[in-house]
Each structure stands twice: as C-alpha cells, then as structure tokens.
Design a protein around this nucleic acid. Structure first.
Lengths: 220, 220
DNA sequence: GCGTATAATGACAAGTTGTCACATGACATA
DNA sequence: TATGTCATGTGACAACTTGTCATTATACGC
C-alpha cells in the first residue's frame, strides 16, 4: 500500500505519478520497468518517490488493486444475477471482463500483467497483498464471495476447500485465456474477442460436464 | 542455448559452473539471482561467463532444459504404458514427476521455478525456447507426442487444437498443484505428497467427468 | 513572528549487467 | 625452435539500477 503521504498529495501531482506508472508498466514488464523512468516522466525527485511508495512492487500493486476493486463489484453483480450458478456466472463475467481488459484504456498494462504474472503474484488477483501479512485488511473478496453465494446444489463440489479449488480452476480458464490472447498478439496473430470467448466457453463446458464421452454415448 | 565454447570446456570447470548456477537459482528467484554470485561461486571471471552464455536467461533455461529432456522421456514411457489414455497417464505421470521435483536434489531450484514462473515462460516447459525463433531445433515434444499418441476415442475432444487445449488444462492441474505445494511450504505448512496427489486426482476427475451432477443423479 | 511537524530534494553508496581491448594459451607449419 | 593464427581468458569499465539520508523548504497552529 502507498504511504499516507501519497494520499495527501495534491490531485495533479498524484495523477501525474499514476499516469507515469501506468505508462512505464505498459511499456515494460514489471521486472524491466524502472522507478527511474517513472519519476523522470512524472517529474518528481527520486527521494519523493520513496516518500510515497515502499518500492516498485508497491506502486505496481496499487495500480492493480484499483482494477481489482472495480472488478470485484462487477463479479458480485454478475454472481447475484445468476443466482449463484457458477458456470452461468462465469460465462457472463468473462465476457464483460474480457472487454474491459482487452479493449480498455489500460490494455497494454494488462498485457504485461498477464504475460509476466507468476504463481506467486497470481494470488493478488483473487486474493490480497502479501506485504500486509499481519492483520490483513481486505480478504480474498472473490473467493469469499463465491463461498458465500455459490449454489452448490447442482455441483459435486461441496466443501469450502473443494469450492476454492474449483474456483481457482475456473479463474485459471480465464487467466490462461487472457494470457493466450496476449501471447498470440505478441507473435503478430490477433485473436478476436469472439474466438477468445468461444475458447473460454469450451473449457468451461469441459469442466462442467467433463471431456469423457458418457457411457451411453459411446459408439464403437 | 549456451555458446559452443561452453560445451568445449573442461569437465570440472563446466560442472563447477553448472553447480554454481543451480545453487544461485536455488537461493533466489530468477529475478533476484545474479550472475555476479554465480561467477563468484564458480570462480570464473566475468568476461568468461559471457563467452559461454548469452545472459542470465540463457543459463537458467539451460538448467531447465536438462530437466525437461529427462522428463520428456518419462512422459513418453508413461503415455505408452497407458495406451494413450490421457487420464490414466496423467495420474501416473504426475505421481512420478512429483517425487522427482519435490524430493529430488534440485527441489529448491524447482521451488523457485514454480513459484516465479510466469505465463510467458511457462511455455518453456511444454514448449521450446523462445530465443531460437527461426528454425526451431526441438519442437514442443510433450504436446507433439500427445497429439500423435493420445487415444481420442473416449474423449469429446477430437481436433488437434482441442487436444492442445485439453493438454494445457491437464498440465495446468499439475503445475498449479506444484505451485500450491511450494506456496504452502513457504508459509510454513507442509503438504504431504499423498495429499498433493489426491488433490491432483480430484481435479483430474473433475476435468474427466465434470463437476456438474449428472441429470439422473439429482436429488431434491 | 516563531516553532514544530511534515514533505521535498538530490547526491550518494552499493549493487547490477554487458562490453571490449588486451593477454594468454594451444597448435600447426615452416 | 620460431612464427602465425585462432580460440579463450581476463578484469577494468561504462552505464545503468535501487534505496537512503542529511539537509532544506514549506505549511500550519499559536
């Protein structure tokens, strides 16, 4: 989390910093992005940066958290609209989130987020910041909300732990699809959002009904 | 790939370098590992390192590729033993691979590999190095072998593209489980390999038969 | 006008990477 | 044995990082 000083900053200065950070993290991956570039762009001295943020990680996840919070609200709405039906919700949520990520103003930022996100950081998306380990302020909203509102009656999956596993499976379908999109784009091929959604739908279908041909359907 | 000079090196020197690299990449993540430490450990001058390797990436993936090659053989054997049955093979392969990764001599190295592997690099495991883009020498062995030897008769999945997608889903179950193991371990909790295998089996079962309760099984 | 807390600042130490001009070997040939 | 040639070895160096800290500036209450 940014330090209190950051939030006390005059609006224009704060915005300039955020803009510069988005630009830098859009230009390069987290690893390759440099604080030096951010402060040069924003026109603030080096020492000031450290007055506002702990380090590069801090400002990066601050940007990511801004998205997450918004996306959490979308998630809750969609989950509610589908009465806790996991697969109906997922299809719907993915559709909406895809548009936002792939076509929104920060798409280049997300390209780097998804291309270079590792297991360790992936937790951030469905979970909470690692740094604030003691007395975590905000919990794993996506997962917690799912545990509370998922309709388990039509699923084999009953225990909270199993739901958590399934939830991660579903989220993986989403993440790896987004990753697939950006990965292809990087190689020059452009995947349409339609094709991407179809891809996600197919994987969700497999997860819902299985890839095995049901007994009575087998034809030799 | 290491430069030819590296392979012409006297055995002891080469081994010393490899050992030093394993040690450094076991100590720290790819990002945090430093060439300086490797050469200090191996006792070779800086200039020499660059005579052997392109950069940090180059030596890291060289280590990873040594594993991959061995694992490829295991994969082929297991696939053959199961007559192309995806899920039978997967359960078996995972069992064996888990032992190797989690209990083998390079387990700390793999901890960092799995904890900090991103989408962009994940391809390396089931695919080939990015750097040698023109005229790729070795193809996506895991995937190619699967496409050729998978028994599709009991699966809904028929086209090569769909098989590739399914393959990635199955591999994800494996990868995220390994990631889960190391992630927990990092937090002090130790997951037994038995529990880990059960976890993987459950996820594979979902993928095979679906998480939805079949029509005739529904009880209100 | 003064005192105090908060914020701004940039030079700095300590580290990193990749390069390059040069030294040193090794080996074939005259 | 002397010489030429080619592959290797070498470490000082430039060009970057990052995070710190002593110092200066600013604002705000009294």
């Amino acid at each position: 989390m940014p330090k209190p000083t950051f939030f006390r900053l005059a609006e224009p200065k704060r915005k300039r910093l955020i803009k510069a950070a988005y630009d830098e993290f859009s230009r390069a991956s987290f690893q390759d992005a440099s604080i030096s570039n951010i402060i040069k762009d924003a026109g603030i001295p080096r020492g000031s940066f450290y007055q506002y943020f702990e380090d590069k990680s801090d400002i990066f996840f601050y940007l990511l958290d801004r998205t997450r919070t918004q996306t959490e609200d979308l998630y809750k709405q969609v989950m509610q609209a589908h009465d806790g039906d996991l697969f109906g919700m997922a299809a719907d949520f993915f559709d909406k989130a895809v548009e936002k990520l792939l076509k929104g103003p920060h798409r280049e930022f997300y390209a780097n987020v998804f291309l270079y996100m590792d297991f360790h950081n992936a937790a951030h998306f469905s979970s909470m910041p690692k740094k604030t380990a003691p007395a975590q302020p905000h919990k794993k909203v996506f997962l917690d909300y799912t545990l509370d509102h998922l309709d388990r009656s039509k699923l084999k999956v009953k225990s909270d732990e199993d739901v958590a596993m399934l939830f991660r499976q579903v989220m993986w379908v989403f993440m790896q699809s987004i990753g697939y999109y950006y990965s292809r784009r990087k190689n020059g091929e452009n995947v349409t959002t339609t094709a991407l959604k179809a891809r996600m739908a197919k994987m969700l279908d497999w997860l819902q009904y299985g890839v095995a041909i049901a007994e009575e359907e087998v034809h030799d």
